[in-house]
């Protein structure tokens, strides 16, 4: 792997392994996962709980230990002093209720990253980013409890965007929201990606959301890769793994007359 190739992928994950150890148990949450995302593309990680999809995002931004393998951004490993890296790679979390400080105003939530990263003209940047995410100036001095779920997620997206990152790591950004609000947030994210030339790495359990948002996707199960697909092959159901097929069937809802569930083993 040469870091000096002419145009390295924006995100390159190679043989990534994340192992959690404790109480004599050793769990490989992510087990040898590799994928690349070119600049300005959107890549999806899809799978059920425990598949390791969120852990990959956390490992990329240093919130989970990288036990093996490498993560490269624009061909380079994230530097030790991570401040510059943190400015470029930002995360949006699932739960807009839990990810905003309950006693910080929107203004403070958005100003703090600017201060940390030494931006000037903070005032102008805060009002610009608010309008980018479709919130009027009247929201600037509100507290999280004065916002609806959708508005909070807009603030969380604004907080991620305010440092002008290249990459957004999106961890189930709409799964806590109502369907109509989900549509608004997905439209917003797509518009922002276009306008700002962002690269997305998006995690979801919802195949339809990933299909709508991502050019390529990786299906995961139990920390391992199941298969990587383009949107086109997903749309035409050209999948090779049984697990992906099961996810596709499940995404269409309930089917009466389908075989009764087999008795399940007690796995956990």
């Amino acid at each position: 792997m040469s870091a000096a190739s002419p145009s390295p992928p924006r995100i390159e994950v190679r043989d990534l392994t994340v192992v959690f150890e404790g109480r004599g148990r050793r769990v490989a949450a992510v087990d040898g996962v590799s994928f690349t995302v070119p600049p300005r593309q959107s890549f999806g990680l899809v799978g059920e709980s425990g598949s390791g999809k969120s852990t990959i995002l956390r490992a990329i931004c240093g919130l989970a230990p990288v036990t093996g393998g490498t993560v490269r951004i624009d061909g380079e490993a994230p530097p030790a002093g991570r401040l510059a890296f943190a400015r470029r790679v930002q995360m949006v979390f699932q739960d807009p209720y839990g990810s905003l400080h309950p006693r910080h105003t929107v203004d403070r939530v958005l100003s703090e990253p600017l201060q940390i990263h030494g931006f000037k003209d903070r005032d102008a940047r805060v009002s610009a980013v608010l309008s980018d995410v479709g919130l009027g100036p009247e929201f600037r001095f509100r507290l999280p409890h004065q916002l609806s779920g959708g508005q909070r997620q807009r603030v969380a997206i604004a907080r991620a965007l305010v440092t002008e990152p290249d990459i957004l790591l999106l961890d189930e950004p709409t799964s806590a929201l109502d369907a109509s609000i989900q549509a608004e947030i997905l439209n917003l994210l797509n518009r922002l990606r276009r306008e700002k030339g962002l690269t997305f790495l998006m995690v979801s359990h919802d195949l339809a959301v990933i299909d709508h948002m991502c050019d390529r996707l990786l299906v995961m199960q139990n920390g391992r890769m199941v298969e990587e697909l383009s949107r086109t092959s997903l749309d035409s159901r050209a999948v090779s793994a049984d697990y992906t097929r099961a996810l596709l069937v499940a995404s269409e809802g309930f089917r009466r007359g389908a075989p009764a569930p087999e008795a399940v083993p007690v796995s956990r």
Partner: peptide
């Protein structure tokens, strides 16, 4: 009808979703 229209579908294309 609005609730049905705002759901993303597999193979629905990347066009903006309908909102309410």
């Amino acid at each position: 009808r609005g609730l049905l229209a705002c759901l993303p579908r597999i193979g629905g294309g990347g066009a903006p979703l309908a909102t309410l």
